[in-house]
Design a protein around this nucleic acid. Structure first.
Lengths: 342, 342
DNA sequence: TTTAGCACTCTCGGCAGGTGAGTGCTAAAG
DNA sequence: CTTTAGCACTCACCTGCCGAGAGTGCTAAA
């Protein structure tokens, strides 16, 4: 498998690079002229025939140039690709962008804006997965009395979520009682994730606060809803960018992708399976059939080492891997820093 | 202009109906056979030639059938179209959907879900404009002290927005002072829209509460942000539905539309100009150049007679006008009722 | 082992011819 | 005067064909 001598690697590198730029099958002549490989077209032809037999290249038809196969891209990404830095204008754009972002305190907005920036800067479609409320830790919970027997429950998590819910307040409570309940809940729950609210734990809370069962129930209902309701956590950016790729001039393919983009649950699942560091899925390495002609590059972002969500870029298999990887890693790092300050 | 005798109207009606269904140019034979018009194809041909000369029909090329012109659709919508009721399954779907919706109390979610339902049921792309915070009236404002010198401002509007902002609390205030400030603000502002907060009004508030300038400033900052920050208020549903329309098999057209879909500000502007009852814009009647081959049907929804936002359906000019209009009117009415209960 | 040369293959664009749907016009029928 | 049948005509679309061009594989020489 790794049995590619240096010359073959050079040629494969040239083919991939060229094809990524032009989207046209690459011929032997092109390579011998445009790349620093001092070999004649004929020699390169022989090598390319070998590379095809080994599975790294394919021919769309007999008398066309070669294009990288999925295996070819994989080898390129694993062994050949040269790391690139951020371009200066990219760097500046990001700095400006994150300065804007610091003003926002709510994670929803941050995530949505990140998706936008990611697609603008890469010129591909971006997918961003927001943190799961369920896996977020309590920071604070508050109860705000309102008029006509209602009250507002406010929940703030360490991941930057602020969630409100209006509840009925079964009987009038004075401020002292409210303070007591809230203080108790905060003491008990602070720092724990919502998912750890097991039935046993709930029983304990209920018995500790047996004097205020009604109001406690209402507040806990909100938590349960947060734990159960799987709200849409995926944000897209630059959907129209796929139309710039010649491989998607076919309307049928497009339809499959655009339809997928509207299926929040499946996208969530997809991104949840990529929560560990950088991941590159090429073509059929993607589980979703709709993405068999695409590559997806993802990186996770985290708070205190705990992974919260994923940012990703989707493009054709003919993607500018090196550039996108650099950008994604940069953004995920900056996002980490930002979230730590929430 | 209105000089169409009954026979011509019947024929125009038949052409539009047929073309809406098939998307193929309609020939004279088709009409004479499939519609209750007891005329030979030849007669219909003559009438169709007249209709073309009058501008209601066009021919894609000399020896093809006729398709309605923009003017043809306009006449159809204004005079010919027969009103249809909701299909039973549509009715059932809507009832079920709005029962779900009643559980949600926040307007953002309601609006987003409405966009989804609208696109599912019409099988076109839907656009929904959420109420403007600025034009919403205060219901309540609250200040919740938090640890380490911070506090949470909560704003609730009559349109169902709940907005939070964490602010610095300049000096420690006791509960009594907080209660006083909040009570005063609520008394002063209740029932008024945020946009009415003129400079003069703000001055009065500041002088009335001169003892608490710092905290007041922080709270008012939030209101100013609500008034200024034009957040994205447009929600889309069923974007991929445009791909089912044969008129959009051309990737270039698609690109223009999809790009437009990402431009929130322009969409907002578009929908804001349709805030009065039902509106039907056919082809170039739409201001946006990207929509010159589309029709947009919109209806506004309101609270106590005050229009809050718009729901709309976007399709090709060859749209099922009657069906879509019925659905849009139904949904906007149900939405009105729902919002009144918030 | 590399390279030059050459025949071969395949795509693509343009062109010709046939087909079919639908028209406009004319003249006869009502 | 209106309607209808008939017929020639037009145009899109499909098919097959041809030549050009790009690129290959193979062979034989360097």
């Amino acid at each position: 498998m790794a049995g590619l001598n240096e010359r073959k690697q050079k040629i494969l590198h040239a083919v991939v690079t060229d094809y990524i730029q032009t989207a046209e099958p690459v011929g032997s002549r092109t390579i011998s002229r445009h790349y620093q490989i001092d070999l004649s077209a004929a020699t390169i032809r022989n090598e390319m025939a070998d590379l095809e037999e080994l599975g790294y290249l394919t021919q769309p038809h007999t008398s066309a140039g070669r294009i990288p196969s999925q295996q070819g891209y994989r080898f390129y990404v694993d062994a050949l690709m040269d790391a690139t830095g951020l371009a200066r204008e990219e760097e500046e754009y990001l700095t400006r962008f994150f300065m804007q972002l610091e003003k926002m305190r709510e994670i929803d907005q941050i995530v949505q804006q990140t998706a936008r920036a990611l697609s603008v800067i890469t010129r591909y479609t971006s997918l961003v997965l927001a943190p799961q409320i369920k896996q977020s830790a309590f920071k604070q919970m508050r109860l705000v009395p309102m008029e006509n027997g209602k009250a507002l429950v406010v929940l703030i998590t360490d991941t930057g979520y602020i969630r409100n819910k209006v509840i009925e307040m079964p009987k009038a409570l004075n401020q002292k009682e409210i303070d007591f309940i809230v203080a108790y809940l905060n003491k008990e729950l602070s720092g724990q994730t919502i998912a750890t609210l097991t039935a046993a734990r709930l029983r304990k809370l209920r018995s500790d606060l047996y004097l205020h069962t009604d109001i406690l129930n209402s507040m806990l209902t909100m938590l349960e809803q947060c734990a159960q309701n799987p709200e849409n956590r995926v944000f897209l950016g630059g959907t129209s960018n796929i139309l710039n790729q010649p491989e998607f001039k076919d309307v049928e393919k497009l339809k499959h992708l655009l339809t997928l983009f509207e299926e929040g649950e499946r996208l969530t699942l997809l991104l949840e399976t990529s929560m560990d560091g950088l991941s590159i899925r090429i073509g059929t390495e993607n589980v979703l059939a709709e993405m068999k002609d695409c590559s997806l590059i993802t990186a996770s972002y985290s708070l205190h080492g705990r992974p919260l969500g994923t940012i990703g870029v989707l493009g054709p298999t003919r993607m500018e891997y090196a550039r996108v990887i650099t950008i994604i890693e940069e953004i995920s790092q900056r996002l980490n820093k930002l979230i730590a300050t929430l």
